[in-house]
Design a protein around this nucleic acid. Sequence first.
DNA 1: CAGGATCCCGCTAGATACTG
DNA 2: CAGTATCTAGCGGGATCCTG
Lengths: 149, 149
Amino acid sequence: MATTTAADKRAQAKAEYDAFLAACPSRRLLDRISDKWVTLILCALGGAHPQGPGHTEPGTEHGPRPMRYSELSRQLAGVSQKMLTQTLRALERDGLVTRTVTPTVPVTVTYELTGLGLSLQQVVRGVKGWAESHMDDVLAHRATYDADA
Amino acid sequence: MATTTAADKRAQAKAEYDAFLAACPSRRLLDRISDKWVTLILCALGGAHPQGPGHTEPGTEHGPRPMRYSELSRQLAGVSQKMLTQTLRALERDGLVTRTVTPTVPVTVTYELTGLGLSLQQVVRGVKGWAESHMDDVLAHRATYDADA
DNA sequence: CAGGATCCCGCTAGATACTG
DNA sequence: CAGTATCTAGCGGGATCCTG
């Protein structure tokens, strides 16, 4: 296939999976990662500034860092043990986080982003950021919408 | 307040809402937009290349465009009427899409992204794209994970 | 065509209690 | 500390029928 260019390959890669199709595996993957807890866990594990810009102020910057179960539980206010464990397991299975057990007494378990998890974190961080920075706009629109009703 | 710099204002804006807090409104907003159907609807309304790169091939590029209810229903394979209508209403209420009724016979209804919706579309497009482009990696990890179990 | 209204099932999130 | 196990209430979400 002498006609296969880089552009062709990119087109193929894009066409291979299509979340618009109900039967496509990527549809279910999209459903999994489109989740409040997934977003928050990934963001927590990613630290404050995951892909910090050019210059880094020591002390203000901490990229991806391992976190313990209890740490996560504390940072994700209101998450139930069940959801936290369940979501972490799913993320581990999908290769987004690693789970490390240190046989101390009592046992110490840490979770950390993988490279794959980091790549997703970069994008879901945007979702969380959007929610926080556009909250006022949304609230304003809701007010006028509800008023007209 | 002579000490209020641009950086301070940004810090304040970021601190105003925090999705890590259970009681924060942004937590619920995050839950709303972390949704399969929200992502797919916004992507559909955003067209193929929302923020196309430098040069644009005429004919291959079509940015945000209004779509009819039935068009959306067709493109989002497998979506139920209930979920489609319900999600569209929520998006309209939050000011992410506009709903336009043209009194033809039968009636024609079109949905279109607002500026706010467009800004969210840019980020959720990344989520959808991630799912499609990393599907193979995830499947591979699942296989090894399930094998070890 | 673009929904509204209902019914109803599934299953999932959350609370609680227990364990290595 | 870091979970597992169990139970249940609630609702997400699909199917179905109907309408302007």
